[in-house]
């Protein structure tokens, strides 16, 4: 099997179109995962059992089932309920929702790590629940969480090829259509793999640096 350089260069522009969608999906998905995760974490800590219990079960359910099936669910079931989503919207929502249950755990451990005295001091100075969260707890809890959150950012980036299953034209899908069209699989598929490696291997190194910087007390 010969590697066809000319063919690989020829398909680059089309793959690049896919890369753009991949990056777009990763960034949008991350934004959803980060915000929704925080809301989930706070809701799970709620004193009201009618809020914390269902949210906990919901998170467990999402975490215990495959992202692919969730994507299918959003893509096929929601239109029947009258909510028509574009493939990319459904994909980004699915990605964000799935990973929000993971980021919620990161937030939860981060929030749990805040000493009790901080809560008591907030109460003593008569801060409202809202003020306690936004001015006391969250600003202290976020920095130690950064490495773990960054880790999920990279994980989401790697998982974006799944969106190909619901017809989003991201990198994997572009590669597949090129491959099917020319009936040449080696070059496009390998290039997709190399692209993901080229991004995630350096990001692993970057992540280790982040860990060293933000979590020195942990080792």
């Amino acid at each position: 099997m010969e590697w066809d350089w000319e063919f690989s260069i020829q398909i680059l522009p089309q793959l690049w179109e896919g890369v753009k969608v991949t990056i777009q999906a990763t960034i949008l998905g991350t934004m959803i995962a980060m915000t929704l995760g925080l809301l989930l974490a706070i809701a799970r800590r709620s004193a009201n059992e009618w809020i914390s219990r269902p949210v906990g079960v919901f998170a467990e359910l999402i975490r215990g089932t495959p992202l692919l099936v969730q994507l299918y669910f959003l893509f096929y079931v929601l239109p029947d309920l009258g909510l028509l989503l574009s493939p990319l919207t459904a994909g980004v929502l699915g990605l964000g929702l799935h990973y929000s249950t993971y980021t919620a755990e990161v937030y939860r451990t981060g929030i749990d790590a805040i000493p009790k005295g901080q809560w008591e001091a907030s109460k003593a100075t008569n801060l409202s629940a809202n003020q306690t969260w936004t001015h006391i707890i969250i600003p202290q809890a976020i920095p130690p969480m950064i490495p773990a959150l960054a880790n999920y950012f990279v994980a989401m980036f790697k998982e974006t090829p799944l969106l190909a299953a619901i017809t989003v034209l991201e990198l994997m899908n572009q590669a597949r259509s090129v491959a099917n069209y020319h009936y040449k699989y080696v070059e496009p598929m390998t290039m997709v793999g190399l692209f993901f490696l080229a991004v995630s291997v350096p990001s692993v190194i970057l992540l280790r640096k982040l860990e060293a910087r933000f979590a020195p007390s942990n080792s």
């Binding site: 099997m1 790697k158 998982e159 090829p161 799944l162 190909a164 994997m172 597949r176 491959a179 699989y185 080696v186 598929m189 390998t190 997709v192 793999g193 993901f196 490696l197 995630s200 291997v201 692993v204």
Partner: peptide, 23 residues
Amino acid sequence: EFFRGTSIFVQLFWAYFVLPLLG
């Protein structure tokens, strides 16, 4: 690092479509 750097999906497609062509 190789297997953690890409997702199952990419690896599966590579194994299924490319490996047969490599023999």
